[in-house]
Simulated scan of single mutants.
Amino acid sequence: MTTQIAAPSSFSNLPPSALTDKVVVIFGGTSGIGLSAAIQAKAAGANVIVIGNDRTRAQQAAEKYGFEWRTADVTQSEAVYDALKEIPKVDHLVLLAGTFVAAKVLDGDVTYMRRAFEERVWASVHAIRALNERLSKDGSITFISGVLADRPNAQGTAVLAAASAAMEAFARGLALELAPIRVNTLSPGHVETPLLHKVLGDARDSVLPAMAASTPLKRLGTPEEAGAATVFLMANGWMNGTTLHIDGGVSLI
């Protein structure tokens, strides 16, 4: 099953020039939430650069939607610096890249578990350092965490939950350290993305309905909904140092 992402018809809830001609760089912008955010930012007038770890997918997304594109393995600092080195200025930096790292602490491979932090915390550190003064002072940085930050489980996600919670704390600290650059975190719940389908594998047809039934709204979120929340964090100049939960109320139960 392939999730189809379409650009919304209007952005009447955004200030008319909030993203017009702004440079938006989205790590993880070639699929799922990142791709939807890229499409919507482009529709709102931004100049969008997507960065993914798969060259073919990045090029295809760019050609289809009119983005610029780069490739980088975010766990490799040199690749992050190389992907950003020729961009003169970035108004909004969005860091959504990351895989689903699941392993039990007592018997999981430590090198593998470290990836949860490498893909999130350290990739963000390297991206911010790479851009440095090229980050617009009236722009923003957006991280991603997830419902695990508030609601961990016993299914081998303790390290991933820790990394997710770390991103929220990191954003709050950076909102002060990098001021007046705004720094926020998007915390999505169960969103039906290609990554979720990949994680569930052959079990997805049975697991997805159960996941949907467990939410207050009795459905999963869409990439479009989470992408719109990402655009909101970029476009609203009064959002700073906060975590925006878009989980259909899952964090309440």
Rank of each mutant, 00 (worst) to 15 (best):
Thr3Phe: 06
Ser10Thr: 14
Phe11Asn: 12
Asn13Val: 14
Thr20Lys: 15
Asp21Gln: 10
Val24Met: 02
Val25Lys: 03
Ile26Lys: 02
Phe27Ile: 03
Ile33Val: 05
Leu35Gln: 09
Ala37Ile: 12
Ile39Phe: 11
Ala41Leu: 11
Lys42His: 14
Ile49Lys: 00
Arg55Ile: 12
Arg57Cys: 02
Lys64Pro: 07
Lys64Phe: 10
Asp73Asn: 14
Val74Ala: 06
Ser77Ile: 13
Leu96Val: 04
Gly98Tyr: 10
Ala102Thr: 15
Ala103Cys: 06
Val110Asn: 04
Phe117Ser: 05
Glu119Gln: 15
Ser124Ala: 13
Asn132Arg: 13
Glu133Asn: 11
Asp138Arg: 08
Gly139Thr: 10
Thr142Arg: 00
Gly146Lys: 00
Asn153Leu: 10
Ala161Thr: 09
Ala162Asn: 01
Ala162Ser: 13
Ala163Asp: 11
Ala165Thr: 08
Glu168Asp: 10
Leu174Gly: 03
Ala179Gln: 02
Arg182Met: 12
Arg182Glu: 13
Arg182Trp: 12
Val191Phe: 06
Thr193Trp: 08
Leu200Arg: 00
Arg204Ala: 08
Ser206Trp: 10
Ser206Ala: 14
Pro209Lys: 05
Pro216Leu: 01
Pro223Asn: 02
Ala226Leu: 07
Gly227Met: 00
Phe232Tyr: 14
Ala235Trp: 00
Gly237Glu: 14
Leu244Ser: 09
His245Ala: 13
Asp247His: 03
Leu252Trp: 05
Ile253Pro: 01
